[in-house]
Design a protein around this nucleic acid. Structure first.
Length: 813
DNA sequence: TCCTCCCGCCAAGCA
DNA sequence: TGCTTGGCGGGAGGA
């Protein structure tokens, strides 16, 4: 696909050789101007010769005649063809490289913005693209399929796709990484490399069979497409074919990069893994070659996206082609609230009828058993119908109830009253004794082999409220924000928008520079085009900087504020669609459950933050923090000496909340804290509170809120594997320290909350769990679940015991 | 010679 | 039934 100018020049050169009588640099005659086929004219004679010499030219001539395209390129080609013999014409055609999929993908991507405006949907019409890029339809499918795997496009209908750009990319990559970790790709890669090494010394052994059997026994063998909510997957072929598709292969390929360190994957290893999990008997050479071909196709597109780069790995056995991940760093899955609904499996079974939450779980924890069932088409229709009905119901205006300003006020009054009364009679000692989190008896320790076993609902929640996530809602009227803990069962009624705030635990671990176990194998890595991009051990850009450029100029809190001010409350449903698209990384569904009013108070001083940074814990924009800790304890900023800042940032969102999803609302007020030590205020009746909450529909009839919710932490689901832990403490004038501990998990949005005041000027109690650490014993890519021990240490889900990094809380003297 | 991957056949399945 | 979609592998260009 040379430019017309270049082609003219080329043709001119050839023309002067072949037809010296031709006028140099003259515009070749247009086809229309050419006289009707006259067998005796030199031009038509030449034309006939060319046509006879090359059937391909003939067919192209026919195709071109059918086409009504009048572009200059075509004209030039036509004229060129007229004057050239077959060989010369073929030589003048674009070289193989110029027709490569990668270059084509570049052209394709150049048509659309990386971050399209959510208000303006970019549609992709395949016919237009094929015409404008002068390429066969088949090639566009290759590109689109890979882009679809990254949720950069999605299929709308026949011939029609929607361009999402890179908005979904961070979410997609994180979901893919999570699934890749679950699929234990690291182990598979290592196993393959190990067997390759063994094979060198034992070349006659039947390693392939062994490998096949090992893959057969592999826990994961399900080829499923990882979806994102809001990016519906509508493949043309809904049968099993799509599960072998380029899309799925592309996702698996990307997963390999995301889970491996260094992020270099050889084609051979990738092909083996893909074959291994596809079909065991496919380890023959032809299948292997086919997989390699497809991987090249995928790699070309991914390279165009600058997600990977070709390198060569030189081993003992020679130089092998490989690819290195150059895309955005995918940080550990600490953003549980995001991943809550980011990944759903498109399983070939009837799982699509399952609510998205469960689909998400299926994707993240794929079935151990391969599912090869194909749904009958009638069943698909039925499922779709049910799904549509369900969506209609859920999107009905009466179903999700947005918390109005008046509701805020009322809740503020109700909950603060209750909570302050409760607190006012509690001494610090009582609170400490009762603090569920610091009590080994109260907090079930997760077994090493388990997913977080913090699954026993304690106190506040009913058994059904097995996992909760915090959401911060601002209340502009009162200046008090609310942390809302939402139950996953309500996730479908809760949608994030841009006028609220969401707590997002930000990963702080530096995942780069980790020496891999595989590094021995990689003796030498050379790049083909020069390593102009960052190396694997070079400090990497964060997602925030690379994929969300807007954060550079604007803090998260500022964006939150802007969005919250910009979006009227009554436009939530209408704007749902567009906002879903506008949210890049913060698109999240939240479970519902709890309301905690939060004050807008200043967060930690810079010294503390810098300390955090020094400790390697936090490298985030401090201005982005809106402390959920201080929010739980409303107080003027002036009363705060220091406030711990957990590693959360605020991401804009809005929330619709089902009225029956709020189970409890522990509230602290400043006044109550001031008088907390000796107050003799009566204990508020829990039955009265329950009555009120039930009466206003905040809790279901059967749910009882305990009298002292603050001292009982919320239940945590057992399914959480990755838990980030954040905590903080606030120092009061009285010297009381309220310590909060947040546990949030990736997968199930588990959230553990506790509040613990400590006596003034006392040395930190060992059982106080106030640490903020994202450090994990298994390395930066693993995030253990945590349980609190009475000695202030945490135990991971793997059973590793380690001491928190540092105390973040600062008490007032 | 091997790597790389274009090209197009043809089957599945949708409209 | 025509058209879209996409799996697949032959085979050729390029290193």
């Amino acid at each position: 696909l040379k430019t017309p100018l270049k082609q003219v020049a080329t043709s001119q050169l050839v023309l002067t050789e072949r037809q010296p009588e031709c006028q140099p640099l003259t515009t070749p005659p247009k086809p229309k101007e050419t006289p009707p086929a006259d067998p005796w004219t030199p031009t038509s004679n030449l034309k006939m010769l060319i046509s006879a010499a090359s059937p391909e030219i003939r067919s192209r001539e026919q195709r071109r005649q059918l086409s009504d395209s009048s572009s200059e390129v075509l004209q030039t080609k036509h004229c060129l063809q007229e004057h050239l013999l077959g060989d010369e014409y073929e030589k003048s055609q674009p070289s193989r490289k110029e027709k490569s999929l990668g270059l084509l993908c570049h052209k394709f991507l150049a048509r659309y913005p990386d971050y399209p405006s959510p208000s303006q949907k970019s549609y992709i019409c395949l016919d237009e693209v094929t015409e404008e890029l002068h390429v066969e339809r088949r090639r566009i499918y290759d590109i689109v399929n890979v882009l679809e795997s990254l949720h950069m496009v999605s299929r709308l209908a026949r011939n029609r796709y929607v361009w999402h750009g890179r908005h979904n990319l961070p979410q997609t990559l994180q979901a893919l990484k999570k699934v890749g970790e679950e699929n234990k790709y690291i182990q598979q890669i290592q196993m393959i490399k190990k067997r390759e090494c063994e094979h060198e010394f034992d070349p006659d052994s039947e390693r392939n069979e062994e490998m096949a059997s090992s893959f057969g026994s592999s826990e994961q063998s399900e080829m499923s497409f990882v979806e994102l909510p809001g990016v519906e997957f509508r493949a043309a072929s809904a049968n099993g074919r799509k599960y072998k598709s380029l899309r799925v292969m592309s996702q698996k390929f990307v997963m390999l990069f995301l889970v491996s360190t260094p992020q270099i994957v050889s084609l051979e290893v990738a092909a083996k893994i893909l074959i291994g999990e596809d079909q065991l008997e496919d380890l023959d050479k032809s299948k292997f070659k086919t997989k390699i071909r497809r991987l090249y196709d995928i790699a070309n597109v991914l390279s165009s996206l600058k997600l990977i780069k070709k390198v060569h790995v030189t081993e003992e056995r020679g130089r092998k082609p490989a690819f290195k991940w150059t895309g955005p760093e995918v940080l550990p899955n600490t953003q549980d609230t995001k991943l809550e609904a980011t990944s759903t499996a498109c399983s070939p079974t009837i799982s699509e009828s399952i609510p998205s939450k469960e689909q998400c779980s299926k994707a993240l924890f794929p079935s151990k058993v391969k599912q090869n069932f194909t749904r009958h088409s009638s069943l698909i229709k039925l499922v779709k119908s049910i799904e549509n009905d369900r969506r209609k119901i859920q999107s009905a205006p009466t179903s999700p109830v947005k918390i109005s300003a008046s509701m805020y006020v009322f809740l503020t009054f109700l909950l603060e009253t209750y909570f302050s009364l409760f607190l006012s009679q509690m001494t610090a000692e009582e609170m400490q004794v009762k603090c569920a989190l610091s009590s080994p008896e109260a907090v079930p320790k997760p077994e090493p082999s388990q997913q977080p076993a913090l699954s026993q609902p304690l106190g506040v929640c009913s058994a059904s409220h097995s996992s909760v996530s915090p959401v911060i809602l601002p209340h502009p009227q009162s200046g008090v924000s609310y942390a809302i803990y939402l139950h996953p069962s309500q996730a479908h009624t809760v949608t994030t928008y841009s006028s609220g705030f969401m707590l997002q635990p930000l990963p702080c671990a530096n995942v780069t520079g980790i020496k891999s176990n595989n590094s021995k194998v990689l003796n030498k890595i050379t790049t083909e085009e020069g390593d102009t991009q960052r190396g694997s051990d070079e400090p990497t850009k964060s997602l925030a900087t690379e994929e969300r450029p807007e954060t550079k100029s604007e803090t998260s809190s500022q964006r939150c504020l802007k969005r919250s001010q910009a979006l009227p409350e009554n436009n939530l449903i209408k704007r749902r669609k567009s906002d879903e698209e506008s949210l890049d990384t913060s698109l999240t569904f939240f479970p519902s459950g709890y309301l905690i009013p939060l004050t807008h108070c200043t967060h930690g001083n810079k010294a503390e933050c810098s300390n955090k940074e020094k400790a390697g814990v936090c490298s985030l924009q401090h201005t982005a923090y809106s402390s959920p800790i201080t929010g739980v304890i409303p107080m003027p900023a002036s009363e705060l000496k220091t406030v711990n800042i957990p590693a959360f940032h605020i991401t804009p969102l809005n929330i619709m909340l089902s009225p029956n999803s709020i189970a409890a609302a522990p509230v602290l007020s400043n006044s109550c804290l001031n008088s907390s030590s000796t107050s003799s205020a009566p204990n508020p009746s829990s039955s009265a509170l329950n009555f009120m909450l039930q009466h206003i529909g905040l809790i279901p009839a059967g749910v009882q809120v305990p009298a002292n919710p603050v001292l009982q932490h919320m239940p945590v689901s057992s399914q959480s594997e990755n838990i980030s832990h954040s905590s903080g403490s606030t120092s009061m004038q009285e010297g009381k320290v309220i310590e909060l501990t947040f546990y949030s998990s990736i997968n199930e949005s588990n959230f553990l909350f506790s509040l613990q005041p400590s006596a003034p000027k006392e040395p930190q109690e060992p059982q106080a769990v106030t640490e903020n650490f994202f450090r994990t014993p298994g390395g930066p890519n693993t995030e253990p679940s945590l349980s609190a021990n009475s000695d202030g240490t945490q135990r991971t889900s793997q059973g590793a015991l380690y001491t928190p990094q540092r105390k973040l809380e600062v008490s007032e003297d």
